[in-house]
Design a protein around this nucleic acid. Structure first.
Lengths: 146, 146
DNA sequence: TTAATTGCAAATGGTTTGCAATATT
DNA sequence: AATATTGCAAACCATTTGCAATTAA
């Protein structure tokens, strides 16, 4: 926990930005919910529990800042709002999402299963890959068993 | 061309909907640009060339209708608006997209390269797959050669 | 004291909706 | 006549932005 916060602080300071109390609050909420994929408004509501004075715009600006610093990244699960998760960091380790279309649960698949596919795309299409995003929709174990 | 239109008409009629002149106009624009991924507003502008009286809401409603009838599907390429393409139809044949982050070009990859991966997800996560969506971001051949 | 951060309210932009007018069955 | 479709303008909703007040270097 603590180390992560310090890590973020250093990351920001390295480019002349700071981890203000408000930003740290946002970071803490993200950390405490790293198993979820919170939307900006959900972060806002959770931040407000700790500090009711914080404005929604600040949350949006902080999330944008964190995205730009590769601390988190934003994903779109098709529900009309961006959601955030801690990024894979600099090590380019991607992960994928299984989205249950019944209960809305999101299951993370940590292994990167696309290596073979990426090779082919690179070779056959002359396309140099920077990033990818795989979403698999279906029914999770719980929801398919009924 | 003609056959596709008739096919759509039958598809709609089967569930008591009709292919009105306005809807056929939208369909024609989509067909004439099936190599692109038009947004609602782009469709609207192209429809207006043929028939300036058409309203934007009609275009949105028509696109929604076509999506519900599995004639087209909407995808989000991360540029803040939905884009549309003819669906794979009933045969469940998926395809993927390579998105050039420099020129914005979208290259379709017709083969479904995810079979092995899907098997693993089904087996290891007990997740029964309904659909998937793979977007690969990077530089296309043209843009990486400079 | 100069620049960055913040809260608020207003603006934005893609999309949806209420409603009255029009067209279809 | 009863129902579906359409255009228009207004509403919606997540997100962004202008600005004045506050805070930090």
């Amino acid at each position: 926990m603590k180390e992560l916060i310090i890590g973020v602080e250093e990351k920001l300071r390295a480019k002349e930005h700071k981890l203000t109390p408000r930003r740290e609050l946002v970071l803490r909420v993200l950390m405490e919910n790293s198993d979820k994929h919170l939307s900006a408004e959900e972060v806002y509501n959770l931040v407000k529990v700790k500090e009711p004075e914080v404005g929604l715009a600040t949350v949006y600006r902080t999330l944008e800042l964190f995205v730009n610093f590769d601390i988190i990244n934003g994903i779109d699960f098709g529900d009309g709002r961006k959601r955030y998760e801690f990024g894979a960091g600099d090590d380019e380790h991607h992960h994928h999402h299984l989205i249950c279309i019944k209960c809305g649960d999101i299951i993370e698949v940590d292994e990167d299963l696309l290596d073979a596919l990426e090779e082919r795309v690179t070779r056959d299409y002359g396309f140099s890959i920077v990033d990818h995003e795989l979403k698999i929709f279906g029914h999770c174990k719980k929801c398919s068993g009924e």
